[in-house]
Amino acid sequence: MRVEDIMRKTVITVNPTTPIGEALLLLRANRIRHLPVIERDILVGIVSDRDLRDALPSRLIVHDDDETVLQKPVADIMKKHAITAHPLDFIEDAALQIYEHKIGSLPIVEGNRLVGMITESDLFSSLIELFGVNRPSSHIEVQVDDRVGMLAEVSQIFREAHVNVSSVIVYPCKKANKKNLVFRVQTIDPRAVMQLLTDKGFTVIGPTEGEVFL
C-alpha cells in the first residue's frame, strides 16, 4: 500500500504571511493539529498546534503586546525543513518516519510541491484495514514452527476448505522456534477449517480457558 492510496488530497494550508491568530482559528475550526505553510504550492514549512500555543501570550500574565502576537506572521514560528514523504512511498515507511521523528503528520510532496498529507490517525485506520477487523470475519490463530514453507502449508488448508482469507499477520511467539499466524477469514463457521488444521497436526489457538462440555 502506497502513501498516495491513503493520503488526504485536500489539505488546509497557510502562507508565511498568515497571522498566527488566523492559523489558530483554522486549526480549531477544522479540528486538525498541523498546517503546512506553502508559497505558490511549494512547501516552505509547517506549524503545529504546539508551535502556535508556545507563541501565544500567557493566560495568566497580561502583557501590553498580547494583541500584536496574534498579528505576527506564521513565518516567524514555523519549522522550516519539514519532514516529508513522497506519494509513492510505502505506508510502512511513512509510519516509520512518523514514529522515529516523534511527529504527528507528514506533508506529502512531489519535488517541493505539496500534494497531500497523512497523519497518525490515517495510518491507524490503514492498520485496522490491514488487520481486517473492520469486515465480518472470524479469527483463526495457528502456532507453527519457525521454518520455511509453513505459511504456504497452512494457506493450502484454507484453500481446501474454500475459506476466503481477508488478512494474514505473522508475528513472533514467546516460545522458541515458533511463530504465530493470525488469519481473519470470511466465514461464520470456521469449524471445518479448524478441524482440517488440527488433523494436519497444527496447533490452533482458541478461547480454551475453561471447559467445553458437549
Binding site: 469486515r135 465480518p136 472470524s138 479469527h139 481473519r184 466465514t187 482458541g206 478461547p207
Partner: peptide, 9 residues
C-alpha cells in the same frame, strides 16, 4: 466477544 468469533465487530 469478537476476539475469535464472527463477525469480529
Amino acid at each position: 466477544t469478537g476476539k475469535y468469533l464472527f463477525p469480529g465487530t
